[in-house]
Design a protein around this nucleic acid. Structure first.
Length: 487
RNA sequence: GCCGGCUUAGCUCAGUUGGUUAGAGCGCUAGAUUGUGGAUCUAGAGGUCCCCGGUUCGAGCCCGGGAGCUGGUACCA
């Protein structure tokens, strides 16, 4: 091995930070654009904060303040203060609002789209950097603001391309969850955390799995055991009955919850809020299929204080190997009344919603739903005619058509292959014959490929030249516009 | 983080009890075709058998350690 080779770095990529292809980027832009438009229309103003925040401003919600790098990406600044990349848009917003409290209008409504970073184990369609599209209202108390947020979430999902029945916003209330835990006799805060996390797994593990997690614990596929909450059978019954009390309509679910025995004061208040949210959603035209009440929704732990909601994309995708894959949650939000107050000591109620754009975009690109059309390619056959080829490409660009002159040094066949790989819609061919006649030859590559499908004989394929035609130079732009579908 | 599986050509994978020069399909490059992306045929290029150490006359294969990938689980503010 030469010295040179020993010093050569290995070309490798840190995991969880995917290289994004043109198809993914196109999907991301389309989603960010569509969702931002919804937020804008509902009266939110754009506001972006920087990528870094002080660790203490990101909050007590860090899992372990002694190890500032677990969960977030943190580093020590010149002045020895710890700063960290934001893990969502909500915490930075709370800091901004607290810092600019005297200047901003209240209620304060803003949206933001941009990357956030989480230092966690990445998985399929789960990244350490991803784009979130976020809307928040600060300074608004009461269920009307939450109902609005839920309606916006539904609109955002539709804007992202989810049709009727392809998505659902599941709604629950932290107050009701607190109430039911009190009823079940779960008092210890640590145990409450374990119980909430167990309830949140209902979607994944069903009644049986959640019961195990609430009781002794559960063994996973690999044989590893998850410690349970250690509840007694009668306590587990109360909680299981609660999370399965979902009905097909919001009003029926509310009725069931209201009638459930031993409901506490906090629980009753939560139920009353859901009833109000239901009424407003109905007035806004949000049906039971678009927004449902689901007692098994929990969403994280620390900062939510009231209604919580989760957006689920129901459409089934297939991965590269053709295996069906479900999305699950692509967004979430809820009421977080304590987050701004943390900085100020006076109440600042708030509610918000966030869509995880990157996962959606990556899946859409993976399923081929998002395909990027390449440029029209002007082939270079005679090296002494470069100026002429450059003019042809320029004429196309001036008409708004994506076009390039071939810049390599290869022959015609490699140029055709290049056009194919770029997913070009067409190539422009001008050789001696065409120049003499004052025409160009245009080859519609998609039409050519379609026509070639039935041909098995090479000579026929050669002589027929499917998808190919000559036209006067003056008609080139118009003919190519027709091929690329541009008016 | 915890538990499991995997790692051989660009990709997907064979590789016998530990035995000479490690294979296939696909892909890639070139030609058959003066100027044509598919198909067919022909030829060619392409390897640190993940890394380090051990056992052995001999290791892709056995043993120990490490790394990476992957699935489950935990965490997900």
């Amino acid at each position: 091995m030469s010295k040179d080779e020993q010093q050569r770095p290995e070309a490798r990529k840190p995991r969880g930070f995917p290289d994004r292809t043109a198809a993914v980027i196109a999907a991301e832009r389309r989603l960010v654009d569509a969702i931002s438009t919804v937020y804008q229309r509902w009266g939110f103003d754009a506001l972006d904060t920087g990528p870094f925040e002080y660790v203490d401003a990101l909050g007590k919600f860090l899992p372990d303040t002694d190890r500032p790098n677990s969960g977030v990406f943190a580093l020590q600044d010149d002045d020895e203060q710890w700063i960290a990349l934001r893990y969502d848009h909500t915490a930075p917003l709370a800091r901004y609002v607290a810092e600019n409290w005297e200047r901003i209008p209240k209620p304060f409504r803003r949206y933001s789209a941009g990357p956030v970073w989480r230092n966690e184990k990445p998985g399929p369609f789960r990244f350490r950097e991803f784009i979130q599209c976020d809307a928040d209202s600060v300074g608004v108390a009461g269920p009307a603001a939450d109902a609005e947020m839920i309606a916006i979430a539904a609109e955002a999902m539709q804007a992202a391309g989810a049709g009727q029945g392809e998505y659902v916003i599941r709604v629950n209330s932290r107050q009701i969850l607190d109430g039911i835990m009190e009823t079940a006799g779960v008092i210890d805060p640590a145990q409450r955390g374990t119980v909430l996390r167990a309830l949140d797994k209902f979607d994944k593990f069903g009644v049986e799995g959640v019961s195990l997690l609430l009781g002794r614990g559960r063994k996973d596929e690999s044989g590893d055991v998850t410690q349970g909450a250690g509840l007694a059978a009668n306590q587990i019954d109360v909680l299981i009955e609660f999370i399965t009390s979902r009905s097909t309509t919001r009003s029926e679910t509310v009725r069931k919850l209201a009638n459930s025995t031993g409901m506490t004061r906090s629980g009753a208040q939560g139920v009353a809020e859901l009833a109000e949210i239901d009424a407003i959603l109905s007035a806004l035209g949000i049906g039971d299929d678009a927004a449902a009440f689901d007692p098994s929704i929990v969403r994280g732990l620390e900062y939510y204080t009231g209604p919580v909601f989760e957006a689920e994309f129901l459409r089934e995708f297939r991965d590269a190997d053709g295996n069906p894959m479900r999305f699950g949650s692509v967004g979430g939000g809820g009421r977080y009344d304590g987050l701004v107050a943390r900085f100020r000591g006076e109440p600042a109620p708030a509610t918000g919603f966030s869509v995880g754009v990157s996962r959606l975009a990556a899946a859409m690109a993976a399923t081929g739903e998002e395909k990027v059309q390449g440029p029209v390619l002007v082939l270079v056959l005679d090296k002494d005619q470069l100026a002429d080829y450059a003019t042809l490409a320029s004429d196309l660009r001036r008409a708004g058509i994506r076009a390039e002159m071939y810049l390599g040094s290869s022959g015609m066949k490699p140029q055709m292959k290049y056009a194919d790989r770029r997913n070009s819609p067409a190539v422009v061919i001008v050789g001696g014959n065409e120049r003499e006649k004052g025409v160009v030859t245009i080859k519609d590559l998609n039409a050519g490929a379609a026509a070639a499908k039935g041909m098995t004989d090479n000579d026929a394929w050669r002589s027929e030249r499917p998808g190919q035609f000559e036209c006067p130079r003056s008609e080139m732009v118009a003919r190519i516009k027709a091929i690329v579908g541009q008016p």
